[in-house]
Amino acid sequence: MRQAKDNLLRAMLWGSAFVSVAILFTIVGYLFYKGFSYISFDFIFGDYSPIGGGGIFPMIVTTIYTILISLIIATPIGILAAVYLHEYAKQGRLVRIIRYATESLTGIPSIIYGLFGAVFFVATLKLGMSIIAASLTLTIIVLPVIIRTTEEALKTVPASYREGSLALGTTKLQTLYKVILPSAMPGILSGIILSIGRIVGESAAIFLTAGTVAAMPDSIFSSARTLTVHSYLVTQESGDIGLAAAIGIVLIVIILALNLSATYISKKFNKADY
């Protein structure tokens, strides 16, 4: 009987693992099946042509712009905020409120952020429909993610490291910079990777703040179209699933490349000190 239970549990665990991996492979496989034939040098590096058949290079550039600008703004603010909350702030009511607020922010649908961005960044700050307006909106979207994961990462740093460092006559800042942050780096990095996914996957908020101009952006103050927005519009306008799938493949490759380089950079960063 106990043996049977054990086998049943094992089968369930194996089954769950199989289902999740199978879903992933099905989706990726389907994308490749539908879209791979569209992929060519001209498709990736060619300029977009409104009469069809053009490439997606402007959207790739726009997507990378939005990722980089959002991360450049959100990462330092997010990490510093988490450090303040975890290391410096007196753990009381104010901190609880801030923490609760950041947690609530992660649950808000992105269209709301998009509307806020359209009103505040686009209209009030007069940035217009632009990459910068979209990036600032995305910054707000990923900020809670970065704060939360960084805080969790700081929690995993053993208190004994702090004590050990401070007992050697170091300042709090030195301890933070030399011992605590490097130890928390893997966790912080996973927050950044999650953020990249969130930014790349976003479409509603970008649609409302960056617009849909399908051309190479002149600067970050131009209106432009990211890959996800493009994929949505292409499917809606032409119903060409294959093209949308090809864009999906490109997106997956971009995310993969960014994740790998983020991991690589953090390893470098860690080695430099050790």
Binding site: S160, G164, A167, G169, Y274
Partner: peptide, 19 residues
């Protein structure tokens, strides 16, 4: 800071850094 450079401390469990 000055005090702790003059008065060192060894803890119950080794707390070496991951370096």
């Amino acid at each position: 800071i000055k005090l702790r450079t003059k008065v060192g401390m060894v803890f119950q469990k080794s707390n070496l850094f991951p370096m």
